[in-house]
Design a protein around this nucleic acid. Sequence first.
DNA 1: CGGTCGTTTGATTACGATCAAACGAAGTGG
DNA 2: CCACTTCGTTTGATCGTAATCAAACGACCG
Lengths: 239, 239
Amino acid sequence: MLSKFDRRGRLGDEDRAALLALPHHIRRVAAGIHLIRDGDRPEHCAVLLSGFAYRHKITGEGGRQVIAIHMTGDFVDLQNSLLDVSDHNVQMLTDGDVAFVPRAAIRELALTRSAIGMALWTDTLIDSAIFREWVVNVGRRDARARISHLLCEFSLRLEAAGLAEQHRYQLPMTQEQLADCTGLTSVHVNRVLRQLAEEGLISRNKRAIVIEDWPRMREVGDFNERYLHDDAAAAAALT
Amino acid sequence: MLSKFDRRGRLGDEDRAALLALPHHIRRVAAGIHLIRDGDRPEHCAVLLSGFAYRHKITGEGGRQVIAIHMTGDFVDLQNSLLDVSDHNVQMLTDGDVAFVPRAAIRELALTRSAIGMALWTDTLIDSAIFREWVVNVGRRDARARISHLLCEFSLRLEAAGLAEQHRYQLPMTQEQLADCTGLTSVHVNRVLRQLAEEGLISRNKRAIVIEDWPRMREVGDFNERYLHDDAAAAAALT
DNA sequence: CGGTCGTTTGATTACGATCAAACGAAGTGG
DNA sequence: CCACTTCGTTTGATCGTAATCAAACGACCG
């Protein structure tokens, strides 16, 4: 859980110890359970120890838009840590272990140990960078590029989290959820995936994805890993 | 410039003084000038004293997606303050006065005065909340709702910044830029604006916008001001 | 006065949505 | 253990929103 912080900021030993000493309780949480609900006043902030979670909003028409996917090691709700009322939902995508840390403890720690505050702040800024890229993805790319882009992003982030290798990984979601990430319908996602496979860009078997031709996928998906602000991800992009 | 902070966090007098004492130089900047460029390593962080700026990215196909609009009082590049290389552009939308603060000074201040750090962090979290809403806007709403939503957002944010009253304001951008905010084409934006006016939801005269029927616009745009996390904006939404 | 930029309108096209249905896999209960 | 349901995937047919292409017009500016 600390490896991500180690990768970017260097925290002193004392700061690391203080982070680890945060009060928390760990619970196994089933897929589908809400970690935060739109309109809630969150009392704690979740850290994903295993499994996946997703952030989403529902429109008045009933459409769902996924805004982010979180994976092992992510500090899930720093986004709500300093705001009073949550403006979106966070739900488990798969079963997973979650550590719940009281919000007040995090604020306290950020105030008294400002290096930790900066590290947490940085973490939320990287989340923002990904939000921005998603705005571009759904706003200005066609279906083929949107999905390719997303598959590229997953590949690098999963690799950085130690959950993928050689651009091979297990997609943690259904095609319908993929559609909700990209602003498409599940029917269309299915067709695009099939087409990408037919062209030999990817191959898949149930949820297992292999990006067979990384350079071309990068191009089709108009993907540039810089927005991930993660050296491990950047390294994975070279292979 | 401090009024926004006053509205949410309460900073002590000393902290306020420290913020005001930040080294900076103020410059008049013309519309179109870049404050940060994608790929740059920013050295300072801009505060908008007057005028508007926008944040955007360009896709490989040459499409432009606007990700955020900033107005008087906004701390424009906290988003890049802790990250090494910018992943997007920020450009002036109109002429304006900009204060440039060295990035190092901001980091220093955030480290030594953690209350300020928290206030700045909060500011970036609110930016994120708006990014998230924009993902939903371009991902899951039709053209009519996207544009209505955006007009509603502007109305409240401008009012909160003291630049609008009674849901009347001056749009700081062209229809083409509006299209780049919503993932549409300028032709289509034009048609939708005309239609909204025909139905009596808004009226317009050049760039001057009046939201004639706020309740219906809120509904058409599927707009809920909660994501702005701003009491002044929430108050304006009631009228 | 020509030139550029933004707005406006019309005609046509296409991408992705919608509607519909079948199928396989996994889980449930009788 | 097998019917039965549920959920996700897959394929086909049709429809509609917004894109694209094209052109004219008004405002502002040098």
